[in-house]
């Protein structure tokens, strides 16, 4: 491996910060390598005021300007410190990390997003759009004030019926005419109960489903083994195995995950 091929820890400048709602921000950082290499479903690890970096699914890239985008929902001290950065501030970044969605072998996609999953699903939609691949985005939110990264053509639900379909993502999925989706796969990023329900819906409809798992992480590069998720391992003669979310994942086929 030559030096130029080695992975790096980058210093990246915050180029722009937008507040999307009360606790959610959209940030762009300049890092041409990450902008160039990232594919949908991959993540970056960004330094914060706390000890460990924080993982964020890549939300978009602007290769011409060397930018990558992430969505940050403020949860604790670490995410708050990142959301409090000013344009021009520098961070340490590792990435792109993990395996993204493998779109090979399918002709159309249903992309399902909940929570901060709207960010990686945005990147997936942009990517498929650029390649002219048929796809539909389904978003589920708790209520109107939570809606971010939405576009008019998306199928939308809210738990309280504020806007869109009154219900959850599966209620949206039930409204789709599946005969219009040839050789279709479902890609889902969201809270665990949502991914479990969407996976079950896909299975019922004979569709392959990929989910993006989230775990508390430390290194993000596969050396500490703290972010494992539980996969079915009957084929290997055991009930389950622990695989690294950051390295073998975060995207896994739904049927392999033990929720």
């Amino acid at each position: 491996m030559t030096v130029s091929e080695l992975n790096k820890e980058y210093r990246a400048v915050l180029v722009e910060k937008k507040q999307l709602n009360e606790d959610t921000f959209y940030l762009s950082f300049r890092c041409p390598d990450i902008a160039q290499k990232a594919i949908p479903g991959q993540f970056v690890n960004i330094s914060c005021s706390n000890f460990l970096k924080r993982p964020f699914g890549v939300a978009s890239t602007d290769v011409a300007n060397g930018l990558f985008y992430v969505g940050v929902k403020t949860i604790g001290k670490g995410t708050n410190s990142i959301a409090s950065l000013n344009e021009g501030d520098m961070v340490d970044v590792l990435g792109p990390l993990g395996n993204g969605f493998n779109f090979e072998g399918f002709d159309s996609f249903i992309l399902v997003a909940g929570g901060t999953g709207v960010f990686p699903i945005n990147f997936a939609s942009e990517y498929l759009q650029a390649k002219n691949v048929k796809h539909t985005v389904v978003q589920g939110f708790r209520c109107k004030s939570q809606i971010v990264m939405n576009r008019p053509e998306y199928v939308l639900s809210t738990d309280n019926g504020d806007v869109g379909i009154h219900g959850n993502c599966c209620d949206c999925l039930d409204t789709l005419d599946l005969s219009l989706y040839k050789n279709c796969a479902v890609c889902c990023v969201g809270p665990l109960p949502m991914m479990k329900a969407v996976g079950a819906w896909a299975t019922k409809n004979n569709l392959k489903c990929f989910v993006s798992m989230e775990q508390r992480m430390a290194c993000g590069i596969g050396i500490c083994l703290v972010c494992v998720c539980k996969l079915n391992a009957e084929a290997e003669g055991q009930e389950f195995k622990h695989v690294r979310c950051c390295k073998e994942g975060p995207v896994f086929p739904y049927e392999e995950v033990i929720f």
Binding site: L52, L225, K241
Partner: peptide, 23 residues
Amino acid sequence: RLGNEGCRVAETECGMLNSVGLQ
């Protein structure tokens, strides 16, 4: 060894706790 199940890491002000369990 499969290691421990559930959350394996907790951050602190000056470091972290792990409970990988020798996976």
